[in-house]
Amino acid sequence: MNTLVNYLVVLAVAALLLGPSLYGMARERRIDRQLREAAAGRSQPKARRAQKSSSRSTVPSTATW
């Protein structure tokens, strides 16, 4: 039983040490891919549309202080 606990502790420490660097590597690869696509002139896969504020017309407020 002691061996199992020691094994789990080693795995937890390894995950804590390797997790942030693996996440950073994945993030860097994504950014590099986006830069290559932009340099090649391709459009972004998730193009955002112009945001509309509202379909109703706005009325000035009549509140006074």
Rank of each mutant, 00 (worst) to 15 (best):
M1T: 14
M1R: 15
M1Y: 14
M1L: 12
N2T: 15
T3S: 15
T3N: 14
T3K: 14
L4I: 08
N6V: 05
N6D: 13
N6L: 09
N6H: 12
Y7F: 12
Y7L: 12
Y7G: 03
Y7S: 11
Y7V: 01
L8T: 00
L8K: 11
V9K: 15
V10S: 06
V10D: 06
V10T: 11
V10W: 12
V10L: 10
L11F: 05
L11I: 10
A12K: 03
V13I: 09
V13Q: 00
V13D: 00
V13G: 00
A14H: 00
A14G: 05
A14L: 11
A14F: 04
A15D: 00
A15W: 04
A15F: 00
A15L: 04
L17W: 03
L17V: 09
G19H: 01
P20A: 00
P20V: 01
P20N: 00
P20E: 02
S21M: 12
L22R: 09
L22S: 05
L22G: 04
L22V: 10
G24K: 05
G24H: 05
M25N: 09
M25T: 10
A26Y: 08
A26E: 05
A26D: 04
R27D: 11
R27L: 11
R27T: 14
R27E: 12
E28P: 01
E28W: 13
E28N: 11
R29L: 04
R30W: 02
R30E: 03
R30P: 01
I31E: 10
I31N: 02
I31P: 01
I31K: 07
I31F: 04
D32H: 04
D32K: 10
D32T: 10
R33L: 08
R33H: 08
Q34I: 08
Q34G: 05
Q34M: 14
Q34E: 06
Q34F: 06
Q34Y: 05
R36Y: 05
R36F: 03
E37F: 08
A38F: 13
A38K: 13
A38P: 03
A40R: 14
A40G: 11
A40H: 07
A40I: 08
A40P: 06
A40W: 07
G41S: 05
G41D: 08
R42H: 14
R42T: 11
R42D: 07
R42L: 11
S43G: 07
S43V: 14
S43P: 06
Q44A: 15
Q44F: 09
Q44S: 14
P45H: 00
P45K: 02
K46M: 07
K46A: 11
A47P: 13
R48M: 04
R49N: 00
R49L: 02
R49K: 07
A50P: 03
A50G: 04
A50M: 08
A50V: 03
Q51V: 08
Q51G: 08
Q51K: 13
K52E: 13
S53I: 11
S53T: 11
S53W: 07
S54Y: 03
S54T: 15
S55Q: 09
S55L: 13
S55A: 10
S55N: 12
R56Y: 08
R56C: 06
R56D: 11
S57G: 14
T58F: 15
T58Q: 12
T58W: 14
V59M: 06
V59Q: 05
V59H: 04
P60N: 02
P60S: 07
P60W: 01
T62H: 01
T62I: 08
A63V: 06
A63G: 05
T64Y: 03
T64F: 01
T64V: 09
